[in-house]
Design a protein around this nucleic acid. Sequence first.
DNA 1: GTCTATACTCTGATAGAC
DNA 2: GTCTATCAGAGTATAGAC
Lengths: 200, 200
Amino acid sequence: MVQRGSYAKGIAKREEILATALEVIAREGYRGASVKELSDAVGLSPAGVLHYFDSKDELFTEILRKRDDLDAETFHAESDTDLFQLFLQVIRHNAEVPGLVELYTRLNAEASSPGHPAHRFFAERRAYMHTLFSGIFEEGKRAGRYPESLDSYSLGIILTALADGLQTLWLQDPTIDMAAEIERLLTSLGIFSHERSTSA
Amino acid sequence: MVQRGSYAKGIAKREEILATALEVIAREGYRGASVKELSDAVGLSPAGVLHYFDSKDELFTEILRKRDDLDAETFHAESDTDLFQLFLQVIRHNAEVPGLVELYTRLNAEASSPGHPAHRFFAERRAYMHTLFSGIFEEGKRAGRYPESLDSYSLGIILTALADGLQTLWLQDPTIDMAAEIERLLTSLGIFSHERSTSA
DNA sequence: GTCTATACTCTGATAGAC
DNA sequence: GTCTATCAGAGTATAGAC
C-alpha cells in the first residue's frame, strides 16, 4: 500500500468503502463482521479493501471515525443549544444502531495497547469529551447554575466512563434506557433541573 | 466432551486448568491469550484442555467466575463492614491485575448475544451487583443516612456501568484512579461523607 | 495506482487413535 | 483422559495483471 489515497479515484473509493461498511454494520448489526463480508458488500476482494487500509482494525477504526463525523453533522450545536441535551440526543440515537454500538464497544475493549490502531482514536475521543464536559461544567459553575460539589475533571471522566459502560450493559440488556440513566444522574447532581430535562 | 468433571480426577484437573490459566493471565497480562498458550502452561495440548470446556469462550468465562469466587473470599463482609468500602477495595485490587481486567472487559464487550457462553455470567453478575447496591442504598435511605435524590434502581445500573466503563478507560490510560473517581461521585451524591471515605 | 489471485500462518475446533 | 491429525476460517503478505 503505497501512496494511499493520493489520487482522486482512490480517495473516492476509500470513502465509498467506509460509507458502505458503516451502512452494512448499522443495518445488519455487527455479527462478527469480517473483512470478507465488508469487501463483498463493496464488490472488492479482501485484499482490494486492504489496499486502502493497513489492517482490519484500522478499517474498523476509520468506520468509527466516520460515524463520529456524521453524528457531528447531524447533531450540531446551535447558539442556544444545551450541550448536555445534545450529548443525550447522540446517546438516544445510539439505541437505533446496535451494530455500531457493538463495534465501538468491542474496539474500545481491544485498544488498550498503545500499538493498537484504535488506541489513538480513543485517546483523542477521550480528550475531546473531557474538554467538552469540563467546559460546560466550568461555565455553568461560574454562572451559578451548577453546584460546586464535583470538580470538572472528575465529571468528565465519570460521564465518559458511564457512557461507555452503559453501552456495554445495554448491548446485553436492551431494556436499559441509556439516556434516561444519564439524565437521572445529572439531575441528582443538580446539573439538570426538572424543567430543563426532557425525557425521550 | 462427555461426562465432564464426573470423576474426581477430572474435577481436580479442571480446577487445575482454571487456577493455572487465572494465574498466568494475572501475572503475564492478557496479550491475546490463546488456548495454546494456556494449555502449554498446564502441560496439555489444546485439545486436552478443550476436553474440559466446550470452547475457548467458555474457558475464559469460567476463569472470570473463579476470579469472582476468589475475590469474594478475600474481600468478605464482616458484620460492621461498609459494603461500598468493600466494593472500592475490589476496584483498587483490580488495578493490580490488568490482565484480568482486560479479560473481563473484552468478554463483556463480546457477550451481548444471548448465545454467547459468557452471556449468562454477565447477566447474573449484573443482577447480583444490582441487588447489592439497591439493598445498601435502600437501607441507608431508611436509616436517614442517604439522600432521597436518586432511586435505588438507577443507582445500581449507574454504579455497575461506571465500574465497567472505568475499567475500559483505565486500560487505555492507567493514570486514571478508578476507585477515587467512584468515591468522588458517591461523595457528590451525598452517599459518602468526608469522614467515612478513606482515600487509597 | 488499483486490484485479483494465491498462498501462508494462526486460530479454535473436531474425529478418532491410544 | 489425552493425544495426534486434520479441518475450516480468519487476517494478511506477496506477485503480478491491468
